[in-house]
């Protein structure tokens, strides 16, 4: 199997890569935080988050803070592991 095949298609986009980067080093992040960190629009963030959720790489928790709805994103164990592999593959491609 070639190195390039080890790259994960699910992370092959700036926004999905960004979401995972934030979530692997933080216990959780909410929608607003992610939006500010990644500098993206609501719709863009929502659709890419959905894609990662479909792959079971992130978990979504919806709750209310007072009357305001709050969406919290959490990386799953599988997500963390696969993202780590993706980074390792990237580093090998650059180094080699």
């Amino acid at each position: 199997m070639s190195l390039i095949n080890k790259l994960n298609k699910a992370f092959d986009h700036r926004i999905r890569l960004g979401i995972m980067s934030v979530l692997v080093v933080n216990d959780h992040a909410d929608f607003k935080e992610l939006k500010e960190l990644l500098d993206v629009t609501d719709g863009n963030l929502a659709s890419h988050a959905k894609a990662l959720e479909k792959e079971s790489y992130i978990r979504v928790e919806k709750s209310f803070i007072g009357r305001k709805p709050n969406t919290k994103y959490i990386a799953t164990d599988v997500g963390k592991l696969d993202f780590k592999k993706h980074i390792e593959a990237l580093e090998k491609l650059i180094g080699g």
Partner: peptide
Amino acid sequence: NDKYLEDIKEIKSLMNKST
């Protein structure tokens, strides 16, 4: 290679900025 390097940089920067 540039695209991979860009990705790694982006990952590092976001990990730092968010923590």
